[in-house]
Structure formats: structure tokens, C-alpha cells
């Protein structure tokens, strides 16, 4: 098994009613439950909006950010186990927020084999 990081971009919930939000949370929980059953869910965290960009030769240029397009903002990630990219992509298709304009970036975690 390889490890993959699913990075969630965009997908703002602003237009949803309270009931729709609760239903959507149900979809996320179902997804995680499914991954837990096959023991493929490793971890995941939500990220708050806003943040700081630290740049420059000595890291002295600190700015509020990232002020990117709404669709680019990373809202959270999962770390999962999968056989290969194909399986990781198949898993990503259960991501509940495609209809909210969100998308998933799939990245393989590098193994540090000695």
C-alpha cells in the first residue's frame, strides 16, 4: 500500500441552508466511514481560511494570505492508503463537494526507503 494525500480545494458552503449543510456533513462522514471500513483512512485535518505567507531570503517577508482565488484555497486534506494512483483517484470520486465547485488534488507521499 502506498500513501496518498487528498488535498481539497475550494468548495464554499455559503449558499447552503442549515439542513443542506447537515446533509452535506453526512456525506463526508459516510465517505470517511467507508474508508475506515477498508482501513484506508489514515488521518485528515480541516484548515481555517486565511493564514500567513512567509517569504524572502531569510523569511522576513511575512504577509497575510493566501489571497488566492476562492477555488484555489485549500480547505483541508486526507491522508489515505491506496494501491496506486488509480485507486486513489477512484476514492477521490466520493469527494462530496464537486457540485460546490470544489476539487481534489491527489499527491503520492514519497516513501523514504533506506
Amino acid at each position: 500500500m502506498e500513501k496518498f494525500m487528498l488535498i481539497f480545494h475550494g468548495g464554499a458552503y455559503d449558499g447552503l441552508s442549515p439542513e443542506e449543510m447537515q446533509q452535506r456533513m453526512g456525506l463526508w462522514f459516510t465517505w470517511i466511514e467507508k474508508l475506515n471500513k477498508t482501513q484506508q483512512y489514515v488521518t485528515g485535518e480541516p484548515l481555517l481560511p486565511g493564514g500567513r505567507d512567509v517569504k524572502g531570503p531569510n523569511g522576513q517577508a511575512v504577509t497575510d494570505g493566501p489571497y488566492t482565488e476562492g477555488s484555489e484555497i485549500v480547505g483541508g486534506f486526507f491522508l489515505i492508503k491506496a494501491k496506486d494512483y488509480d485507486e486513489a483517484v477512484t476514492i477521490s470520486k466520493d469527494y462530496p463537494d464537486f457540485d460546490m465547485g470544489g476539487y481534489v488534488q491527489v499527491r503520492q507521499v514519497m516513501k523514504m526507503d533506506m
Binding site: 458552503y13 442549515p18 449543510m21 452535506r24 456533513m25 470517511i32 485528515g44 480541516p46 481555517l48 480547505g75
Partner: peptide, 12 residues
């Protein structure tokens, strides 16, 4: 508030 809850809780 509800959007924040959804974003925070959706990880299970």
C-alpha cells in the same frame, strides 16, 4: 457559524 462547523466537523 454553520459554515465553520461544517468545515471543522466534516473530517469526522
Amino acid at each position: 457559524t454553520l459554515v465553520t462547523a461544517l468545515n471543522t466537523w466534516r473530517n469526522g
